[in-house]
Design a protein around this nucleic acid. Structure first.
Lengths: 119, 119
DNA sequence: TGAATATATGAACAATTATTCACATATTCA
DNA sequence: TGAATATGTGAATAATTGTTCATATATTCA
């Protein structure tokens, strides 16, 4: 039974601990999704967009101006943020306004800042 | 004065809003550091390591076993986690035990999970 | 309708990065 | 001391990804 769970090629120091942790580990899909989510936060341009949207609902062009980027680059990044359900948008004529989708973004941002500022 | 702050090449929709957000934006260094921090969470292997260490202090070999990876790959990734002050370690003979450095890791992890599971 | 403007998008390029492999270092113990 | 074991590390490779550029789409308004 343990042969199926444990990797035979590696010397295990504490087999009991290893089996216990293997059992309590979240499934691969959740781990993958979590990594994908944090990857979205892991880019300076997107982080800047998030910071800006923490203050105000903003349109693509104004975000580009604020972040010293181009509307095209921002549009690409907003798509990534949209796909992760971190931002939502509303259309008003030619202009598309983006805003943060829920409070998790702010909470994750704040926890990150706490860690940075504590070190 | 506004000429220095605003990017002239982009049409601004709401100048007042743009200037206000530009002023309240965190400085580039903090934004960069935050992105670098979340980048560390943005990899499946590192996320698995973090999940494992949420349960138990573990040595390199056992982490490799748990994550179906090699000690070398894990060692490389632990270096990244160490540099971000997310894990700490203690040496016991040949064996090096790693554990999470502070509660921020767990908090960031939990906030991420909340977001995933709400969608 | 047609010009002007805001945003979106596909392809290409450059840069970053995770893993592998070989090997180095450190520690134990016979 | 020397073999065995655990971990660390540098270089190379493969894969991922952010930005740019050209262009497409959508909307307004004269």
């Amino acid at each position: 039974m343990n042969e199926e769970i444990l990797n035979e090629d590696i010397q295990i120091v504490d087999e009991e601990k290893v089996l216990k942790v293997k059992e309590t580990l979240p499934n691969d899909e959740l781990i993958f999704d979590l990594a994908e989510l944090f990857k979205v936060f892991g880019d300076s341009t997107r982080m800047k967009i998030i910071c800006a949207l923490l203050e105000e609902e903003l349109c693509v062009g104004d975000i580009a101006c604020i972040t010293n980027s181009t509307p095209s680059a921002i549009s690409h990044q907003l798509r990534v943020l949209k796909q992760s359900k971190l931002v939502k948008y509303r259309k008003e004529g030619k202009v598309v306004y983006y805003s943060l989708d829920d409070d998790h973004v702010k909470e994750i941002f704040e926890k990150g800042r706490e860690h940075i500022e504590e070190v």
